[in-house]
Design a protein around this nucleic acid. Structure first.
Length: 271
DNA sequence: CCGGACGCCTGTCGGC
DNA sequence: TGCCGACAGGCGTCCG
């Protein structure tokens, strides 16, 4: 579920309230996430101050004085900041309780996410070390992407969703960026000219920036840290819109499958 | 190295 | 109404 804009929105929401607070306790009700939640996590974090919250790709890096928690929201995860004690639901697996009594609650029905602990440089962690550039970072541009795609025969949409090529882009924003750029998602990535790759970079950056400003996209499970929905849902041009008129040319939008994922596009506008 | 398929898990929805 | 398959925002791993 959560892609770069959703994770970044969550990061910004949490950063405001959590930085500088210390951890009173970590309550783990179910350790069975993608990988088991480390048994030592509570002991490591208890009494420690949260120094920063960063994001890399779709990972949140919650920094303490003595290490970093790597949090991934998987397909259905969310982090909510609660001010008042509330009964946990069946999928509320972890509470990070702060010294002022507020707590960050991790909910993840499908348990595809993770909470891991590292005491070394988190960017060198095996899960992060091979990630490609951040699409909104200064080192991401048309020249670099064009070079990385040289010789690749896989569809461009698969490449956008490959975190080694560019980090943090998932199914929603890959579809939306390709629509804006007017590129057929099935097209072999290495056969797209430099000009069109430049357009794709612009489109991707635009859609991600606007989505972050809107607080991300809520389809079902995702919620901001304050419980609000992401408002980008109403701005989606093609995602989930098979058969509806193309916003640009009114031809019914098509759907296909690429890399086992549903893909929506306009047969006329995207070449 | 590359591309494609497969699980992991729970919930929901549509068709019969 | 009930059952069953398809599908859902991700991604590490395996196979050819």
């Amino acid at each position: 579920m959560p892609e770069l804009p959703e994770v970044e929105s969550t990061r910004r929401d949490l950063e405001r309230d959590v930085i500088g607070r210390s951890v009173a306790a970590v309550v783990v009700r179910d350790r069975r996430l993608r990988w088991p939640v480390p048994a030592a996590l509570g002991r490591k974090l208890a009494g420690r101050t949260i120094t920063d919250i960063r994001r890399r790709a779709k990972y949140l890096l919650i920094g303490a004085e003595n290490g970093t928690v790597l949090v991934h929201l998987g397909m259905s995860g969310s982090l909510r900041l609660h001010r008042v004690p509330t009964m946990p639901g069946p999928h509320d697996h972890i509470d990070l309780v702060l010294d002022d009594g507020r707590f960050v609650r991790y909910r993840d029905p499908r348990r595809f996410g993770c909470w891991l602990w590292t005491e070394s440089d988190p960017t060198r962690h095996p899960l992060l070390v091979h990630l490609g550039p951040e699409p909104l970072g200064v080192d991401f541009d048309g020249a670099g992407l064009h070079r990385r795609l040289r010789g690749r025969t896989a569809p461009i949409k698969n490449m956008l969703m490959d975190s080694r090529i560019v980090a943090g882009v998932g199914n929603i924003y890959a579809n939306e960026a390709l629509f804006i750029a007017g590129i057929d998602p099935r097209r072999a990535a290495g056969r797209i000219g430099r000009r069109r790759i430049d357009r794709l970079v612009d489109a991707l950056q635009d859609v991600l920036r606007v989505a972050v400003e809107a607080g991300g996209t809520t389809l079902r499970d995702y919620a901001r840290a304050d419980g609000a929905s992401g408002e980008f849902s109403s701005r989606l041009n093609v995602y989930g819109r098979e058969g509806e008129p193309c916003p640009r040319c009114a031809v019914p939008l098509a759907r296909t499958n690429l890399g086992q994922r549903s893909t929506w596009y306009c047969r006329r506008c995207q070449r």
